[in-house]
């Protein structure tokens, strides 16, 4: 973990209530796809944990949905705003387990962490297939961005207004070497049941500190008690108690 001050370069709305924030500064605290950052929002007490969508040595992209007061305030920040950010939180995805043809499944606001993961897997010479699930056409984002990485992309919408009608589980390919999944818990459970290979799930929980001190986000797993912010947010399929 590293505390750093990042400057907002740009911010734009990319879907209904979904913002893309580009920042620059020291991102050396980030060591793996699937980690998150914890942002101090002026006027609020607790920081707001947001998953890393993409990063380079000196840039960070966050894609987040406006769901409450914290994200509503964040969305109003103009370019040039300097944010106090704890970076490199959580374990992140393990790409060594992916095999040659990994499957990436993202649902709604669970899509962003799949982006840097996809980029990393492609850079490692692997051939990812991506399934992105949304509620409706207005919620869809990043389809082209994933395609530009060279991945095969399928988009589903629950109401059928765009792509395949249904849920991500209605569009899973028949063969893949390993899967990575991030999204709302009902989706995670559906993917858990619909998949037969090993895989990794990214979890969300209300957090106090985000760096392992408060025990606010603990969960039980087959391998013992884990903190979503520290030993998570990524858990292996085999250790989940479902």
């Amino acid at each position: 973990m590293k505390q750093t001050f990042l400057t907002i370069v740009s911010q734009q709305r990319i879907a209904d209530n979904v913002m893309e924030m580009c920042l620059e500064g020291d991102t050396s605290g980030i060591t793996a796809s699937g980690q998150f950052v914890n942002i101090k929002v002026e006027g609020l007490f607790l920081r707001r944990p947001i998953s890393v969508c993409d990063y380079t040595e000196n840039s960070l992209t966050l894609v987040y949905k406006i769901v409450g007061e914290g994200t509503r305030l964040m969305a109003e920040y103009p370019a040039g705003t300097v944010l106090d950010v704890l970076t490199g939180l959580g374990n992140g995805y393990d790409t060594s387990l992916s095999g040659d043809a990994p499957l990436l499944i993202g649902g709604g606001v669970g899509v962003p962490p799949m982006y840097n993961l996809c980029k990393t897997l492609v850079a490692e010479g692997k051939h990812p297939t991506v399934v992105l699930g949304f509620n409706s056409k207005g919620d869809v984002f990043y389809e082209k961005e994933f395609e530009a990485l060279g991945a095969t992309v399928t988009v589903t919408t629950a109401d059928g207004s765009y792509g395949v009608k249904g849920f991500v589980t209605d569009a899973l390919p028949t063969t893949y070497s390993h899967f990575y999944c991030c999204g709302p818990e009902p989706m995670l459970k559906a993917v858990y049941r619909a998949t037969s290979t090993s895989g990794q799930f990214s979890f969300e929980e209300r957090m106090g500190c985000g760096f392992g001190a408060c025990m606010g986000c603990s969960c039980k797993t087959i391998t013992g008690y884990k903190r979503i912010c520290k030993e998570g947010p990524v858990l292996q399929k085999e250790e989940i108690l479902w």
Partner: peptide, 20 residues
């Protein structure tokens, strides 16, 4: 002890609630 079920944390004006 595992403690309490989650959510265990809530934001408050100038503070927080924990139920670890």
């Amino acid at each position: 002890r595992f403690g309490n079920p989650t959510p265990r944390i809530a934001e408050c004006p100038a503070g927080m609630i924990n139920s670890v």
